[in-house]
Design a protein around this nucleic acid. Structure first.
Lengths: 341, 341
DNA sequence: TTGTATGCGTTATCAG
DNA sequence: CTGATAACGCATACAA
């Protein structure tokens, strides 16, 4: 690999001059500059960015910590494509680190990005608690933004949508349509999002004085198979329901399949609502309603804030995005809805 | 930031010793080692990976060049999740660079990853020609693997599935079912994949002596809107067809929508086949057949080869993956198929 | 306008 | 087993 020193010698100047030519900082004579450029061409010189990063203490890199289990569906691909696009737009590269299966590994992933001197970091925590994130933001000097969590101490360093109230609103909508027997399939309950959506379901019932029956709730782990299993289990136990809320679209799709196999019509007999993952254009999954969270907008806001901080700004207002409930004709009123009985 | 030197001073040893303790290379006295570890704890020392990378000339990083326009659908998310997962599995991080909208930008993205001294690089070319990729592999010493392209000079440095024959097989399948009037919606024709799929369509027709009529082909650019537009255009021109092949699932879905609005039943009147993007479980899009390419397996093979080269191996055999044609009952025989007339 | 010298935080080579 | 010391390749303050 040809280095800056060789270019300098070939051009008959010092390293410093070559450096100036490349960075554009400082004055360089017109003719010298030309000589340097020619030397660069001739030698096929390429700057070593590692060396530059070490010297400038900047890496032109944005780090993203995220658990690989989230890597499925359009929610993820939206998130990532938006992140990659905006990162490029501000002249940097996106560095991915997987949080894997535990808090320790998630911490390690974050730490690695810090050790690599990323200019700024986004984290979509799966295991680390908000309080721990607060602590990390305190002790680190690099800009850090937390996705999908609400922080107590640094409310402006996070972007979140209120998962609980989005879920609540969806269920309330069903209740207003006359549904009373609403079944629910949870997500993984070690995930905050999974817990929030369950809590939203429970809140909606409570708010309308409907007793929360444990028998209508089944625990899932985000996969279609879990959704199918949940429906099978509900049917087997003879639980009646005229509506079903699944904590994500993948499980909802599994549920649709199982309902289909049981000969139960959707939405004529049972209305189904999911969350997030599947593009919900009616002609894709005609029978499914869904709550879509504005992930692209959230990423946009996140990176804007990071850039703002990189330029020395102080963060002010916290930002929260509401889930957007996409309800189509496919959600039937309970009155016209025979349920599973 | 506390450096290695400070740790050394605190432990009453030299930098070299601290380095040895951390890297595990070389002998260090038991008691000294303990002192060093304590000093590290006390000072909250973190190694600067940039400095380490500069000194070792390794970055523990895998680079991926890919155009952001590919960032949609499950094809992308499969690709990326597999890449990220395997990268982590070999103790590295994934670095993303966007090829954007031109060959120049794609070259630049690749060059940037090289300048960052990625240990190895994967590229899913959108604009760069196979010959140029061959040239790049020649002049670069880092392991490079090319996705979805067939290289002449370095056939073992690429992983590709034969897009042409996968498309051909799909169309042949329709022909064997008795279809003769088969419409086709192309992808963007500046993309090799788009051209290959069109060529596959034409090859199938030629192979069975069916005259290729330009009137049954419409040009699209991968989006659902293009699929809808293509169908609208076919219908408006009074073109009869009993089957429709769209060059990806997004366009197929747009086509489904437009057919639906025109009151044409799928697959009773028209059979539809797409490619790649949408999870094709029957209960998701019941009326759509699709050709799925094994992207996860391709990424796996790619990274395995890169690792093999990093360990000094010489690449032997080229690898090619066939597309897997997923045909469901939704493809009707032409005999029972009334077409659009 | 250009060159010199020093720093960035490690690793690695030799002596001791 | 440990300590100087020289790379690694570039940026930059300070002189000239």
């Amino acid at each position: 690999m040809t280095t800056m020193l060789e270019v300098a010698k070939r051009a008959g100047v010092s390293k410093a001059t070559v450096s100036r030519v490349l960075s554009g900082n400082g004055y360089v004579g017109e003719e010298t500059r030309a000589r340097v450029f020619r030397a660069i061409e001739e030698s096929g010189y390429r700057p070593n960015l590692l060396a530059r990063q070490l010297a400038t203490r900047k890496s032109q890199t944005l780090g993203l910590v995220m658990t690989n289990t989230l890597y499925h569906g359009s929610y993820f691909s939206d998130l990532l494509s938006q992140a990659a696009q905006m990162t490029e737009a501000c002249g940097r590269r996106l560095l991915l680190a997987d949080g894997k299966h535990s808090a320790a590994q998630e911490r390690e992933a974050l730490q690695h990005l810090l050790d690599l001197r990323c200019d700024a970091i986004m984290i979509y925590p799966r295991f680390l608690s908000p309080d721990e994130m607060d602590a990390i933001i305190d002790e680190q000097r690099v800009p850090v933004m937390v996705l999908n969590r609400r922080l107590r101490k640094h409310p402006s360093h996070c972007i979140y949508s209120d998962q609980l109230s989005a879920a609540r609103d969806a269920v309330v909508r069903l209740i207003e349509l006359g549904h009373r027997d609403i079944a629910f399939v949870t997500g993984a309950l070690d995930s905050p999002t999974g817990r929030d959506r369950l809590a939203g379901y429970q809140a909606a019932l409570a708010q309308h004085g409907i007793p929360a029956s444990q028998t209508r709730v089944r625990e899932g782990k985000w996969t279609p198979a879990c959704g199918a299993q949940a429906v099978a289990s509900l049917l087997q136990d003879g639980v009646a329901f005229s509506a079903l809320v699944a904590s994500n679209d993948n499980m909802a799709i599994g549920a649709l399949k199982q309902l289909h196999e049981a000969g139960i019509a959707v939405p004529e007999q049972v209305s189904v609502i999911g969350f997030d993952d599947i593009p919900t254009a009616p002609w894709v999954v005609p029978s499914l309603s869904s709550v879509r969270l504005p992930i692209r907008e959230m990423i946009q806001e996140t990176i804007n804030k990071l850039i703002f901080m990189l330029e020395g700004g102080e963060l002010g207002t916290p930002a929260r995005f509401e889930g957007e409930l996409i309800v189509r004709e496919s959600v039937a009123a309970a009155t016209s809805n025979s349920g599973t009985r």
